[in-house]
């Protein structure tokens, strides 16, 4: 199939960017979206134009490295990551706009590549369980009820891709943060630090310049791992509890 791509080009973090139009031809349905961009990049390279920079690593939908705003949708029209999006989701003649994640907490580095280290700093603020190596008790000493284990696992599936922030009209990172709060908060091991964790993560989140959540729900709709909105609720609940307990 043949497509018209409108792609954001920006030479560097401080450079001014613009949309550039590129036609591509003979795209096969079985290609992934990123393979389609690989083809374009080979052509650009052959023409002596610098290839388009975009992030990807595993190309299996698990590392969270990839992520593009495709015609206004984070990761494109399907509920999956950009690398797992295939061209069979498009039709011949389509015009596709491709933009980087837009959020001031995710500054653009080049073209479609953004800096998501703000997520790492949110985790540094408390997204962990303090268990020094070698100090762990026997794994079976603390059973975890299956429903709690399952809910924890569901939330732990977050890959940190940032699509939630990209899709949220407020550029809020609540879904990402809620997922971590729920993952650790459902487990007995996560209890001792529960209050401190939520307070300090939320404060880091606000400090990074993410927007506040107004419960729009676009985040969850865009999330490739289908993290449900109730993790945000869990976060709010934990936060209220922690504040009331005077954290």
């Amino acid at each position: 199939m043949n497509l018209t791509l409108k792609i954001w080009r920006q030479a560097g973090p401080k450079a001014k960017g613009e949309m550039v139009t590129y036609p591509v031809t003979d795209i096969s349905e079985d290609m992934s979206f990123l393979e389609m961009l690989d083809v374009l990049n080979e052509q650009l390279n052959a023409r002596g134009e610098e290839p388009i920079a975009f992030d990807s690593d595993c190309r299996e939908g698990i590392c969270g490295m990839c992520g593009l705003m495709i015609s206004g949708k984070a990761h494109g029209p399907e509920v999956t990551t950009t690398c797992q999006l295939h061209m069979r989701s498009f039709s011949d003649g389509d015009e596709i706009t491709i933009e980087p994640w837009r959020a001031d907490a995710f500054p653009v580095i080049k073209d479609l590549v953004v800096d998501r280290s703000s997520f790492d700093r949110i985790i540094q603020a408390g997204g962990f369980i303090s268990a020094n190596t070698g100090s762990a008790p026997e794994a079976h000493s603390v059973p975890v009820p299956k429903p709690k284990a399952d809910r924890s696992f569901m939330a732990a599936a977050c890959i940190g891709c940032g699509a939630c922030v990209a899709a949220c009209p407020n550029a809020s990172g609540m879904l990402f943060m809620g997922a971590k709060i729920t993952h650790l908060g459902e487990l007995p091991q996560g209890q001792p630090e529960r209050d401190a964790r939520v307070v300090s993560m939320v404060s880091q989140h606000d400090h990074e310049g993410f927007g506040g959540c107004t419960n729009v729900g676009a985040c969850s709709a865009a999330c490739p791992k289908e993290i449900p909105l109730d993790v945000i609720n869990q976060l709010n609940k934990d936060l209220r509890g922690a504040l009331m307990r005077g954290e």
């Binding site: 962990f128 369980i129 268990a131 190596t133 070698g134 100090s135 762990a136 008790p137 026997e138 794994a139 079976h140 603390v142 059973p143 975890v144 009820p145 299956k146 284990a149 924890s152 696992f153 732990a156 993952h183 650790l184 487990l187 091991q189 996560g190």
Partner: peptide, 22 residues
């Protein structure tokens, strides 16, 4: 065996049986 203990303590959500054990 120590690895499993360590990971569980860190909050790795391994699959569990209905009784709550791994």
């Amino acid at each position: 065996a120590n690895i499993i203990d360590q990971c569980v303590a860190q909050g790795v959500p391994f699959a569990r049986e209905y009784g709550g054990l791994l």
